[in-house]
Amino acid sequence: MKKNILLVGTGPMALDYAKVLTAQDFSFQVIGRGQESAEKFKTETDIQPFVGGLQKYLENHTLTDNTYIIIATGTEVLMNSLISVLEAGAERVLIEKPAAISIEELIENKEKLLPYSEKVFVAYNRRFYASVIEAKKMIEEDGGLQTIHFEFTEWSHVIEPLTKAPGVKENWFFANSTHVVDLAFHFAGKPQQWQTYSKAGTVKWHAKTNFTGAGITEKGVLFSYLSNWESAGRWAIELLTEKRRIYLKPMEGLSVQKKGTVTVIEHEFDNSADLQFKPGLKNQLKAFLDNDETKLLNIKEHISISKEVYSKIIS
């Protein structure tokens, strides 16, 4: 049966999804709110969005049994959009991370969301980076992952002047830093025994700015992390096997330090899709539209990680 694909949103992320869908000859409808953003979307894609917002669309349209919905709205309306399409009968939903404006909002809606665990997936696209896929192959070749270290430093001086909806910057760790944390524990498994530490800084818009922690995961992988939003740093993951240390730093790239050496060598791999589109998006959409649930983060798992892992890191 042909899939009825709906793309909710007309902002930068929705544009990235539209580019992938168009390049692969998928037909789809786009739902936007304002006339101005819709016109900009049409200029860049030659696709005319429905104008008036998701609620207006649902009042005038019935979702078919085979409706696949991609929610790429602003963070502040992700949860309301998700609940609306589920109640309207969406077959499957891919929602932009982190699916809610805060951990609290996500958990508050737990009972509404859990019945749809097999239908709703959270779009952590870094799981689908070509660099990540290549790193997984290398780890398997080496007999498994032994240790992982990661950093989710945010540039607070850059974030400070940004104009965002109320609550977005206050929940920046959840909305943005979990890109890195999700990927790290996607490699290593969920933390099992661990200690976390965090403290506030001079930043006024986020409760904590300095983080560290360490422990062991359910897969027996030792891990550590460090992040200081008021110092220098960047997003990074280091993966240690018996034979080498693999660097995702930047995360779209891949460098390797072999055991017994000090030289770090850039590793070449096929990243053509990540150069053509927003990195990870093509592979992520393929998994979603092909019903490949093994590669996607379902909403039940996301709620669990948010409550047990993300909350502990920032508490």
Rank of each mutant, 00 (worst) to 15 (best):
D65M: 10
A207K: 13
I31G: 12
P49T: 03
F187M: 08
E268H: 15
T75V: 11
Q193N: 09
A23C: 10
L15T: 02
I148T: 13
L7S: 09
I305W: 09
V168A: 00
K136M: 09
K199D: 09
F277S: 05
T73G: 08
A130K: 12
K295L: 12
L297V: 15
D16R: 07
L183T: 14
A90F: 00
N109D: 05
F269L: 09
Y225I: 12
K282S: 00
F269E: 06
K295F: 05
Q55E: 14
G280N: 00
F26I: 09
N60R: 02
S177Q: 07
K137E: 09
E308L: 14
S315M: 11
L6K: 06
T45C: 04
K42W: 14
I101K: 07
P115T: 12
R244T: 05
T75Y: 14
T212N: 13
F28R: 02
S81T: 08
A135G: 10
E111T: 15
R234M: 05
I314C: 10
R126H: 05
A207V: 08
A123W: 08
A165F: 04
K3F: 04
N228F: 05
E36W: 02
A236D: 02
G189S: 04
T163E: 08
S272N: 07
H302P: 02
S102W: 09
E36L: 07
